[in-house]
């Protein structure tokens, strides 16, 4: 093993490690988000994973393609929490009916409400800069 090449490898690893730790510990400040409810988002995310909602749905454009993106479903016109619960329980032509407990239904609805408050992923909400960067409006 060449020592010079190994040194470059170690230097890159140190940079990677520092950048990773910075990401883990630096909180993200969001104006509309309710920080005292962060435990609820953790619980709701576990329910989202338990029923593998990500197989068909996206959050911030990440996930499956069979169903719609759910990032801002809670604030959409006519999509109340009761509507969401009923939809999950009844299913549709493409979505199976999920037999969730009432606690799980509550949890997933709260999760979607809190995700909605973190922001929006629609392109209309961004300004495009001349250098190719995008800035949130």
């Amino acid at each position: 093993m060449n020592p010079k090449k190994f040194l470059v490898f170690i230097l890159l690893c140190v940079l990677y490690f520092l950048f990773s730790v910075w990401i883990y510990i630096t909180p993200v400040k969001l104006s509309a988000f309710e920080y005292d409810r962060s435990a609820e988002i953790g619980e709701g995310h576990l329910v989202f994973q338990k029923y593998n909602c990500q197989a068909c749905h996206q959050l911030y454009g990440l996930g499956g393609y069979l169903g719609p993106d759910l990032t801002n479903v809670s604030s959409q016109k006519g999509k109340s929490s009761n509507y969401i619960k009923a939809y999950i329980k009844a299913g549709s032509a493409k979505m199976p009916a999920f037999n969730m407990s009432s606690e799980e239904l509550e949890s997933i609805v709260r999760f979607l409400e809190l995700v909605d408050k973190t922001g929006t992923s629609l392109p209309d909400n961004y300004l495009i800069k001349f250098d190719g960067r995008v800035i949130r409006k």
Binding site: S20, I23, Y24, T26, P27, V28, L30, S38, A39, I41, G42, H45, L46, L59, Y60, L62, L114, V115, T118
Partner: peptide
């Protein structure tokens, strides 16, 4: 290993950081 940091509530409860780590 990093992909499983979400099992710790400290990470899971910070949705944006958690999602950043997941895709990182």
């Amino acid at each position: 290993l990093e992909n499983y940091l979400w099992i710790f509530p400290f990470i899971r409860e910070q949705y944006i950081i958690d999602t950043t780590i997941q895709w990182k």
